Simulated assay, not measured.
Amino acid sequence: MVAEDDNIFRAFAKAMYNTIDSPVTWFREKVVEPNQKQYPWYHRKYPRVPTIDECYSDDVVCDFEANHQFKRDKAVDSEILNILRMRYEDCMMYENPDHATPCKPLWDKYKDAEEAWFIKYGDLGANADARKAYMKQKHRLIWERRNGPLSDLTK
């Protein structure tokens, strides 16, 4: 058991510290922290809304939400593609001049992601929206039903 400190200056300093710190600590623990939104990730997670094919044609709010979700998804997919490209470029710089073999898996992964991005977002233009992307997907599915998959034509 520790005896109480008989130094008057330290006792005074501790009393002043507790006088200032106690209300602040109480406010943080009892008010601020219970009211904070706790996320286990670093970015905000938006709730998924109905996609454009699930919206009625006259539902403006659903159309607006689907467009915003489409634009967020496009931004995330573009950033993923950018990260894959940077990983490949870093591998090339690190493994130079023999980068062909060790960086091949990264290159293949990047090319697959690039193809998937272009299938979904390519040729839509600068002001693409969810309805245009949905029509592009529909036309592609119809074309593949009539002519077979595109992967068969590239071989």
Score class of each variant (00 low, 15 high):
42 Y>C: 08
39 Y>W: 04
59 D>L: 09
136 K>Q: 14
58 D>F: 06
137 Q>H: 09
60 V>R: 14
16 M>Y: 04
59 D>G: 12
39 Y>C: 11
2 V>E: 07
50 P>N: 08
71 K>R: 10
58 D>P: 01
20 I>D: 07
42 Y>F: 11
32 V>I: 15
154 T>M: 11
106 L>N: 03
107 W>T: 03
70 F>N: 00
106 L>C: 05
64 F>V: 04
126 A>S: 07
24 V>W: 05
20 I>M: 12
9 F>V: 03
74 K>I: 05
96 N>D: 04
108 D>H: 12
103 C>R: 01
11 A>P: 00
80 I>P: 00
70 F>V: 03
90 D>K: 15
12 F>P: 01
59 D>M: 08
148 G>Q: 05
104 K>A: 13
121 Y>P: 03
88 Y>E: 07
30 K>L: 08
47 P>H: 13
43 H>K: 12
2 V>C: 03
7 N>C: 07
119 I>T: 13
118 F>Y: 10
98 D>E: 08
51 T>A: 08
18 N>V: 09
59 D>E: 05
105 P>F: 09
78 S>N: 13
59 D>S: 09
29 E>N: 12
20 I>P: 00
121 Y>K: 10
57 S>Q: 11
110 Y>T: 01
70 F>L: 02
101 T>I: 08
109 K>E: 15
37 K>I: 11
80 I>Y: 00
150 L>D: 09
86 M>Q: 12
103 C>A: 15
17 Y>P: 01
111 K>C: 01
45 K>H: 06
100 A>Q: 12
84 L>F: 04
153 L>W: 15
67 N>L: 03
76 V>N: 01
149 P>G: 13
90 D>G: 15
98 D>A: 10
109 K>N: 14
138 K>E: 07
152 D>F: 06
25 T>H: 12
92 M>P: 00
33 E>G: 01
84 L>G: 02
90 D>S: 15
127 N>Q: 14
144 E>C: 14
130 A>N: 02
112 D>C: 04
13 A>Q: 14
66 A>W: 00
129 D>Q: 06
149 P>V: 09
92 M>N: 07
86 M>G: 04
114 E>C: 05
141 L>N: 11
3 A>T: 12
66 A>E: 02
151 S>C: 04
27 F>Q: 01
55 C>L: 03
91 C>I: 03
150 L>N: 08
141 L>T: 07
1 M>R: 09
48 R>N: 06
118 F>D: 09
90 D>A: 15
119 I>M: 11
92 M>R: 15
103 C>Q: 08
36 Q>A: 13
30 K>G: 00
109 K>Y: 05
155 K>Q: 14
103 C>T: 13
140 R>P: 00
12 F>Q: 14
110 Y>G: 02
103 C>F: 13
26 W>H: 12
32 V>W: 10
43 H>L: 03
27 F>M: 13
98 D>N: 11
111 K>I: 05
6 D>L: 08
81 L>M: 10
80 I>T: 09
12 F>D: 08
108 D>K: 15
68 H>I: 01
75 A>S: 08
30 K>M: 06
142 I>R: 13
99 H>F: 12
118 F>T: 06
34 P>C: 11
11 A>V: 02
143 W>C: 11
55 C>Y: 01
19 T>H: 04
153 L>S: 15
155 K>E: 10
26 W>A: 07
